[in-house]
Nucleic acid binder design. Structure first.
Lengths: 200, 200
DNA sequence: ATCTACATTTTTATAGATAAAAGTGAAGCC
DNA sequence: GGCTTCACTTTTATCTATAAAAATGTAGAT
């Protein structure tokens, strides 16, 4: 969770969500003055916000030429998937052995939110939170935040591709993963997760 | 490679190296005015430089309280090693199948630099470049930069622990890895790398 | 009509000034 | 003596202004 007491954090947070959703089109220019006017501040905090977006890989900066919304190529997507397939099982194995009933409850919340979602945007958000929730108990902060970043990038792709054709479905994989986690079956949980992500 | 035409990049780059080497002690305060005076600029570019350090995980920021040099715990080290053991083989497998003779030559340069190094700092630098060089041909930019970050953090630990007791040695693992890469033996290359990293 | 050179405009990068929050320390009180 | 309060200092966060670089558009030449 970013700190929202500081302007750059607020601005970066807002823009990040818009980029993920596809409200800001890939390659679009992010001009300092324009954003400053929108958030009613000078462009100094905007510069810091843009830097945060660059660090999240949601934007690309070219010195003295400005920053643009990140363009996600097919090759980027392959790489991201590969990294997720490597890191998420790593986190999941640890999470399975450490999860408490409180953690289970938390996972269920987002599984439910996925199934109940009735538009692509809210489904994707819930999905992302679910996939993070099942890994949360792993107790590896930097592993989690790296995965979170990859999941955000995956979300961009989802929105650009299936935003319009999305339709509500109950996700069988999600419940299967949850069941495996609850019976502390790392092997099964990881296997299903890997299959689930590969289909993405 | 960071762009050095812009002040925040220059400042961040310099401070990063100092943090890695341990010149800046863990937990030490990074005050804007002080750094601004040192680099003869206002504190606006300093703020951006500090943000970059935070993004590299070389520093920790607390809003309205300032930023301090990152403190690396034993648990952090475990996590970093775990991630490296997961990501570096992933990169290495791809690198092995893609490496050209030009790449081999590049790897040799840094292997040599390691063996020739006669102080801990230059050895560590060469070592880091070697470990990156063997993965470079993988053609996965974000995987590489993530690994680079983890290697930087490993370097901090090296310097805090073995800076004083370091003595020159020829690294058998390094040449074994290179040989395996040159005969396109992914399995062996990964196995040696994993063992090599685990001994840390 | 197209290209080049130059002037104009726009945008980024940095400086300097100001506001606001946090830290510091001394005086007074229990 | 130790604790609290309040003024003072320091430091962070933000704004406004300026410098510098890039983009844009126009006029003139071929």
């Amino acid at each position: 969770m970013p700190d929202l007491s500081i302007k750059p954090a607020i601005i970066a947070d807002t823009l990040a969500e818009e980029i993920i959703r596809g409200d800001l089109v890939q390659g679009a220019r992010l001009a300092q003055d324009h954003i400053a006017a929108r958030f009613q501040c000078s462009h100094v905090p905007v510069r810091e916000a843009l830097q945060r977006l660059v660090q999240m890989e949601l934007a690309t900066a070219i010195p003295r030429k400005g920053v643009r919304v990140f363009k996600l190529s097919d090759q980027d997507h392959d790489e991201i998937l590969e990294m997720r397939l490597s890191l998420e099982p790593l986190a999941l194995r640890r999470a399975v052995t450490r999860a408490t009933s409180q953690d289970y409850a938390n996972m269920e919340v987002f599984r439910h939110a996925c199934d109940k979602a009735d538009d692509a945007i809210s489904w994707e958000r819930a999905n992302r939170l679910f996939h993070l929730a099942i890994l949360q108990p792993c107790d590896r902060p930097r592993l989690l935040s790296q995965i979170e970043q990859l999941q955000r990038l995956s979300a961009i792709r989802f929105h650009t591709r299936w935003k319009t054709t999305w339709s509500r479905t109950s996700d069988a994989d999600h419940s299967a993963i949850l069941k495996a986690i609850k019976r502390a079956d790392e092997k099964a949980a990881c296997a299903i997760l890997v299959r689930h992500l590969s289909r993405g």
